[in-house]
Design a protein around this nucleic acid. Structure first.
Lengths: 230, 230
DNA sequence: CCTGGGATACTTGTATACTAGGAGCGTGCA
DNA sequence: TGCACGCTCCTAGTATACAAGTATCCCAGG
């Protein structure tokens, strides 16, 4: 259930970081369902380490608001919070749009070539219907665009802040025509960056990011138990 | 040396959160100097709790990049990293400027009145030469402006991301005329918000935030041991 | 049949014991 | 004198033991 092996190739005892990555991924991918309880003891037993590293991993998840823990009672996978999604979207949009303005100004041919290759990979993943690969390529695409700005820590901050948003993103991939839309929007963004046009790049990126957000109501209708509150 | 009592009024055993807040404050205020070693054992003994809550607090500080730990060797207060400052400034600027655009659109009279009161407090703190109070009021001012946007988690993310920047901010307060400059810039921002002018508010805020950044070279000249690498 | 109380089996939080590894110093040998 | 080896102490990392609190189930009693 917890895809630890994806983050732990060396087969030694997993570290807290690997435990964190595995749990986070399992939550974002929906393998651990909202509301489900995460027992430190059973996780420790199943993974084969003591409670200490498990606790540290859960502590990070708590800061990401991916889990909620009630003292002396239990730790539970958080439901998706619509307010948190809105906030995450705002943060993501602010950071990525600001970054891409710089990126568009400094992008060299080789940078564009690399992004181009990624984009073709997205096309292949779509043709193969491989949602997992597409999700990873999508992330790499935005990550690379962000890093081009030179502010490497922006992606790190953004990544942690948009955990709730990622859960929606992951869910949305199954919608019909959604991948086509994503790819053609990525194309527009990349072309603007290649043309070193910050204004156009920002506009297309902002539009693209909001496409994701527009899926929220549909996701909520399809997976009502994923969401919390009003 | 560690002002734990500032975060722990009830005199019970301090929690990990209180330990984190106290250590973070001590580092930002410069009471714990860059390069200084933080021993989990001695901290635990001095504060009167076991290593476990200390470790969790140090774990968060590590994520903030305020400390660096070398396994089996020790944990050390990080030196201020110029790259980290640049990144923090970029993140802060992106988030706060985006937020204030919304804030300026929705600000009501009572919001402005509250900010006005804060601003007068800043004036009193300047007159009294009370840097600590000024720093707190400055933070509240930006915090309140940010929250007006409705995206409450923006401040939380920004706060954690700009830890390195805060260390500079705190150092800069001693510069002559610096407080006057801060206050008059706050005035410009607040007036633009009161006038519900997003563009003007953003422009003044961006200008204000960069004033802080301009102090970095001077701080580096005065406290060379605070900084790392080129 | 319904309700109340208590044992019990969980939970997280904290404290402590143990492990592995690096730093530094002192001693002994060349 | 200088270098090298080894011992000792300290570190973080991990495992385990203990404490405190909550939900649940079962049984007794009305």
């Amino acid at each position: 259930m917890i895809p630890l092996d994806r983050y732990q190739r060396d087969k030694g005892k997993p570290t807290r970081v690997q435990v964190y990555a595995a749990l986070r991924d399992a939550i974002v991918r929906g393998e651990l369902e909202p509301g489900q309880q995460l027992s430190e003891n059973s996780l420790a037993g199943r993974i084969g380490v003591s409670r200490t590293p498990i606790r540290e991993a859960i502590g990070r998840l708590r800061e990401d608001r991916l889990v909620e823990t009630v003292p002396q009672l239990g730790t539970f996978v958080a439901r998706v919070n619509p307010t948190a999604i809105g906030d995450a979207q705002f943060i993501r949009e602010s950071l990525e749009c600001a970054a891409i303005r710089l990126s568009a100004q400094v992008a060299k041919e080789e940078d564009v070539a690399e992004l181009e290759e990624n984009l073709q990979g997205q096309d292949r993943a779509r043709a193969a219907g491989d949602l997992d690969s597409f999700y990873l390529l999508d992330d790499s695409f935005h990550h690379a665009l962000c890093d081009l700005s030179g502010h490497l820590s922006v992606w790190i901050v953004s990544e942690r802040a948009k955990a709730h948003l990622n859960r929606i993103r992951r869910l949305s991939l199954g919608m019909p025509n959604y991948l086509d839309e994503m790819i053609s929007e990525h194309r527009l963004v990349l072309d603007a960056v290649a043309a070193n046009d910050p204004d156009l790049a920002e506009r297309h990126l902002r539009e693209h990011l909001r496409t994701v957000l527009r899926e929220v109501p549909r996701m909520r209708a399809e997976h009502p138990d994923y969401f919390e509150g009003p």
